[in-house]
């Protein structure tokens, strides 16, 4: 069976849930082989094995981590050349898509970004994408080269299964040309103790309607074990950090439950949350377009409703 290369997304060796999802998808298509960039494989090994990696290619070089995107694409292209995989799967985030774009050109291979599903099919894969702010679904295949697919978070539920996890250190030669954009400083984002926004099963977001007070939103999120998100209006007002913005120019989320509090539901916001399984909104304006999307809506003041709902939710849990 052919290998499916899965680029591991990790933070200092902590493997992200999206990688477990990619390994789960890779098993449908062939033999999952994880590609690990960095020096923290000791932290990552167990998780990769646990989600079925038959092989792990370890590329440990400062050239890969001290420069933006280009060296990673070059290293992957060399692996594609030597291993001849049946497909390459990468997480659909900004860096993942850029690596995929460069890899596509380097290997003359078809590229599909933002897949929400990947199945075995013609030419290796058949992908499903959700386009135009979730208004359409599109199925596609790759007709040239090695299919390169970036996959959105929550495309599948990760299925554990032990893989052989045979490890192989790979030396790569990174050209001087790929090392021209230097990362001169890196500040890790402080942990909030809440789930990652784009991986969370539940997201509670606040908008302009919060009036700048996110306490009720955060308390309700914590009662549900949810991540907190924000609309651009709330971010632009300086009420919540940009890293938590949901929408076209922020994060795309696809949780089991999305709660929009004081958010009107503009098309750019929808683009980031429309594929959520269940949608709930609290908005004081009964005419607000957000109510066109919801499974359940409350017309009312968000502070009042969320505060009371938080108490009731906590009471039920105990």
């Amino acid at each position: 069976m052919s290998e499916i290369l899965v680029l591991v997304d990790h933070v200092e060796g902590a493997v992200r849930k999206t990688t477990a999802e990619l390994l789960t998808i890779a098993r449908r298509l062939g033999e999952p082989a994880a590609v690990f960039f960095g020096s923290e494989i000791d932290t990552a090994r167990e998780a990769l094995k646990h989600y079925g990696a038959e092989r792990i290619y370890v590329l440990d070089s400062a050239d890969l981590t001290d420069h933006l995107v280009a060296p990673k694409a070059e290293a992957l292209a060399q692996l594609v050349e030597t291993q001849q995989p049946a497909a390459v799967l990468i997480s659909s985030n900004a860096e993942g898509k850029e690596i995929a774009g460069r890899l596509s050109i380097k290997t003359s291979s078809g590229l599909i970004t933002d897949a929400v599903d990947v199945q075995a099919g013609d030419g290796g894969v058949t992908t499903t994408q959700s386009v135009f702010a979730g208004g359409y679904t599109v199925t596609s295949t790759v007709t040239k080269g090695t299919p390169i697919v970036t996959v959105k978070p929550n495309a599948v539920t990760p299925q554990p299964t032990e893989g052989a996890a045979a490890e192989e250190a790979v030396d790569v030669e990174i050209s001087a040309a790929a090392k021209t954009a230097r990362i001169v400083e890196r500040r890790q984002r402080a942990a909030t103790g809440r789930p990652e926004l784009n991986e969370a099963a539940i997201v509670v977001s606040g908008g302009r309607g919060t009036g700048g007070d996110f306490d009720a939103v955060e308390a309700f999120a914590d009662a549900l074990g949810a991540a907190v998100g924000a609309s651009r209006a709330a971010v632009d007002a300086g009420w919540y950090p940009h890293a938590y913005q949901v929408g076209q120019t922020g994060k795309t989320v696809s949780p089991q439950l999305y709660v929009a509090a004081g958010i009107s539901g503009a098309i750019q916001h929808r683009a980031g949350m429309q594929t959520s399984k269940t949608i709930v909104a609290i908005n004081k304006d009964a005419e607000s377009p957000i109510f066109e999307l919801v499974d359940f809506g409350v017309v009312g003041d968000l502070h009042r409703v969320l505060k009371s709902a938080t108490e009731k939710a906590l009471a039920r849990r105990s």
């Binding site: 596509s104 003359s108 291979s109 078809g110 590229l111 599909i112 058949t126 959700s130 386009v131 979730g134 208004g135 359409y136 679904t137 599109v138 199925t139 596609s140 295949t141 790759v142 007709t143 040239k144 080269g145 949608i279 009964a286 109510f291 066109e292 999307l293 919801v294 499974d295 359940f296 809506g297 409350v298 017309v299 009312g300 003041d301 009042r304 409703v305």
Partner: peptide
Amino acid sequence: SWTRVEAYAERPPRSAGTIVTD
């Protein structure tokens, strides 16, 4: 093109939800 669209479908409108007034 190195990829081919096989099909597309308009997403069915979400079925109307329950709206309550607080």
